[in-house]
Design a binder for these strands. Structure first.
Lengths: 123, 123
DNA sequence: TGTATGTTGAACCATTTAGTTCAGTGTATA
DNA sequence: TATACACTGAACTAAATGGTTCAACATACA
């Protein structure tokens, strides 16, 4: 179960690490597309594009359906949701960490300022 | 400029696609750590961990500083912010798309229901 | 000074990845 | 039926990845 989630995160981030695949996702935002259309758009062989689509599909970022001889690709939310959850958790934790650091820095500045004033106006 | 952003997104997502590297980030959430500490925690050679740290650093996910002979690693927000922005843009766009689809389905159901009632109670 | 520690670099290895070509299979259509 | 179209699978290639070992280098410390 935990392993499963880890593997799926691996798959989602790995899928997103390729500019062509991110391009495919952005293309599918405008409309669904067949493998042939995607291959032409991204100037590569059908076989090459098919592999990208398989990667995206296994990561849960696209879903496909074959009717007749054409396989139509459309967006799938699962993979993106999982990646988004992990990233947002990180951002929240990190921001509290950075906020704490900011406070330390602010405190240092406050003391420094007080110190400067003491120097200028003793007692 | 655009190329640059693409390359950085590639780097960020690729860095996040490895479970060990995500583990390092989660470890650094608790406290900064040296390469040696990280290598021990994740049960791998110093050299191996160093490579992971380089990957994370180039992706802007960690920053490091060497004082004396120890290099200390801490979290860097840049890479995560860039990845988060890209993902959140997608989620917004996709959600409006899925919402639109939901409305179509709802409309179909409404008509179906009306049709059913017409069948049960004519005129 | 000598020795232990923490890191770095070079070289190597197995596996994965991104792409290709070529040879199929199944489906629409004249 | 014959032909074109859309996809699929197998096999291959070059490069990247994740890991190792071994040798060096710089710094702390007795």
């Amino acid at each position: 179960m935990v392993q499963h989630t880890i593997a799926r995160l691996d798959a989602a981030f790995a899928a997103l690490s390729d500019a062509t695949r991110r391009g495919v996702l952005e293309h599918l935002e405008r409309s669904d597309a067949s493998i042939t259309e995607l291959a032409e758009t991204f100037d590569m062989t059908l076989t090459g594009m098919k592999k990208h689509v398989v990667v995206l599909e296994q990561a849960g970022l696209v879903i496909t359906q074959k009717v007749g001889r054409v396989r139509t690709c459309s967006l799938g939310q699962r993979g993106l949701d999982e990646a988004a959850v992990w990233i947002e958790q990180r951002r929240q934790l990190w921001n509290t960490r950075f906020d704490a650091l900011d406070k330390v820095v602010a405190e240092m500045k406050r003391k420094e300022k007080a110190n400067g004033q003491r120097k200028r106006q003793p007692h």
